[in-house]
Amino acid sequence: GSPLAQQIKNIHSFIHQAKAAGRMDEVRTLQENLHQLMHEYFQQ
């Protein structure tokens, strides 16, 4: 897949890990990143 698709997959797993660790501030930051990446992805 594209590097962007790979990045989106990575962030999904980072979010999963951050949630499991209870780091909600990190989850929020990652979700904002994910949102931006998704936006770029669909602009392609």
Rank of each mutant, 00 (worst) to 15 (best):
G1I: 13
G1M: 12
G1E: 11
G1L: 13
G1C: 10
G1V: 12
G1Y: 02
S2T: 12
S2M: 11
S2F: 11
P3N: 14
P3G: 12
L4W: 06
L4K: 02
L4S: 02
A5F: 13
A5D: 06
A5C: 10
A5N: 05
Q6I: 10
Q6S: 05
Q6V: 10
Q6M: 09
Q6T: 08
Q7D: 03
Q7S: 05
Q7A: 11
I8R: 00
I8A: 01
I8N: 00
I8P: 00
I8G: 00
K9F: 08
K9E: 05
K9G: 03
K9R: 10
K9L: 09
N10G: 04
N10H: 07
N10K: 14
I11Y: 05
I11R: 01
I11S: 01
I11F: 06
I11W: 03
I11L: 14
H12T: 09
H12F: 15
H12E: 08
S13C: 15
S13Y: 14
S13N: 10
S13K: 14
S13I: 14
S13T: 11
S13M: 14
S13P: 01
S13Q: 13
F14C: 05
F14K: 15
F14V: 05
F14E: 10
F14R: 15
I15G: 00
I15V: 02
I15E: 00
I15P: 00
I15Y: 03
I15C: 08
I15A: 01
H16R: 15
H16E: 13
H16Q: 14
H16K: 15
H16V: 12
Q17N: 07
Q17W: 10
Q17V: 08
A18V: 02
A18I: 03
A18G: 01
A18S: 03
A18Q: 02
K19S: 05
K19N: 04
K19L: 15
K19V: 09
K19W: 14
K19Q: 11
A20D: 05
A20T: 07
A20G: 03
A20F: 03
A21C: 09
A21H: 05
A21L: 10
A21Q: 07
A21T: 04
A21K: 05
A21N: 06
A21P: 01
G22E: 03
R23A: 05
R23D: 06
R23I: 02
R23G: 01
R23F: 04
R23C: 08
R23L: 08
M24P: 04
M24W: 15
M24I: 08
M24N: 05
M24F: 12
M24K: 04
M24C: 13
M24S: 05
M24V: 07
D25C: 15
D25N: 07
D25M: 06
D25H: 07
E26G: 01
E26A: 05
E26K: 06
E26F: 06
E26I: 13
E26C: 13
V27G: 01
V27Y: 06
V27M: 05
V27H: 02
V27T: 02
V27K: 01
R28C: 10
R28F: 06
R28P: 02
R28G: 03
R28V: 07
R28H: 06
T29Y: 08
T29Q: 13
T29I: 13
T29H: 09
L30A: 04
L30C: 05
L30G: 02
Q31M: 14
Q31H: 08
Q31L: 14
Q31P: 01
Q31I: 14
E32K: 13
E32A: 12
E32M: 13
E32D: 08
N33V: 15
N33E: 15
N33G: 06
N33Y: 15
N33L: 15
L34E: 00
L34C: 06
L34F: 03
L34V: 02
L34G: 00
L34D: 00
H35Q: 10
H35E: 09
Q36T: 09
Q36H: 08
Q36I: 10
Q36K: 13
Q36V: 09
Q36P: 01
Q36G: 04
L37W: 02
L37Q: 01
L37V: 03
L37H: 01
M38H: 03
M38G: 01
M38N: 01
M38A: 03
M38V: 07
H39K: 14
H39M: 14
E40V: 10
E40Q: 13
E40R: 12
Y41W: 13
Y41I: 05
Y41C: 14
Y41L: 09
Y41Q: 03
Y41H: 04
F42E: 06
F42C: 09
F42K: 08
Q43A: 11
Q43P: 05
Q43M: 11
Q44C: 15
Q44A: 10
Q44H: 10
Q44G: 08
Q44E: 08
Q44M: 12
